[in-house]
Design a binder for these strands. Structure first.
Lengths: 146, 146
DNA sequence: TTTATAAAAGACCTATACGTCCTTTATTGA
DNA sequence: TCAATAAAGGACGTATAGGTCTTTTATAAA
């Protein structure tokens, strides 16, 4: 239910890079995969996608790795959802009725609309920077699994 | 995102049966699949499951079909979720962190908790009967797709 | 007791999310 | 210019949700 693993990995990945970036260094896939306990090659695919979408940066070769760019911290969660699974999902009926809308609402339309709007609002407002500024001394631990 | 097709088909299926039951007749798969625009054999699988779980009734042979039993209308939406996809999903972290909890919350823990609790409350309170008593003259249309 | 009807059972197929692996390209320093 | 490093590219494999098909079992009426 709710969001895909891809989204979760993407968010944790970019947050990790942002966190380490404050120490002034880049991050390599090997380190990320190990620290976040995420399948390395799968993470590679997701990071590549985020770079392609312009929300972060990468350089190849020795001393290369992933780092922030001017957009990263301003990126909204909803953009990450769009990149990893497409936002249309926020607008589809719980009962997969194509013609469900306020004129012809399914029996769950109203309740779901409220919840979805709340979630959409949350994800549209919150940026990666917001999540990073939680002042949590255990921030890294909070995005790792083990 | 959110709920599976199986859940949607299950809900619409049982609501259709309940609605027709008021006319004092049973419903066959062929009719349901056609009216609800749902794959017939897939729906069969789902209806069978609901019968096995005891939330409705079926009889084979001529004049057979699906009908309500004493539990049907009292069934809560959350039970339908449990039957079709398992409720553990309501408790898993958006970032798929196994160790995400109030002591060690992921960056999205609090917001997601609230949304999920709202949804859980909604689904735990609402029964099929509640949905049926919407006094919608177009009720059948509202659960059909075409 | 035979025939028609309708669900139950279960084998099978398909698409997609999730995950792995290998090769290529870019970058660095010796 | 060579060797090492690290991401990019893309083929491939696996598990599961979603969907189809055929056979079996139960029931009703003639």
């Amino acid at each position: 239910m709710f969001l895909s693993k891809t989204f979760g990995y993407a968010l944790r990945g970019v947050l990790y890079v942002a966190y380490i970036d404050k120490e002034g260094r880049k991050v390599q896939l090997d380190e990320m995969a190990e620290k976040l306990k995420v399948p390395r090659h799968f993470l590679a695919k997701i990071m590549k996608l985020m770079v392609k979408e312009g929300i972060m940066q990468s350089t190849k070769g020795p001393y290369g790795g992933f780092s922030l760019n001017e957009h990263t911290l301003k990126t909204k969660l909803i953009q990450l959802v769009r990149i990893t699974e497409g936002v249309e999902q926020f607008n589809t009926c719980v009962l997969s009725l194509r013609k469900c809308n306020s004129q012809n609402p399914c029996p769950l339309h109203q309740q779901m609309l409220e919840l979805r709007d709340a979630m959409l609002a949350e994800f549209s407002a919150k940026t990666l920077d917001d999540l990073l500024n939680s002042d949590d001394p255990d921030f890294i631990k909070s995005i790792a699994t083990a």
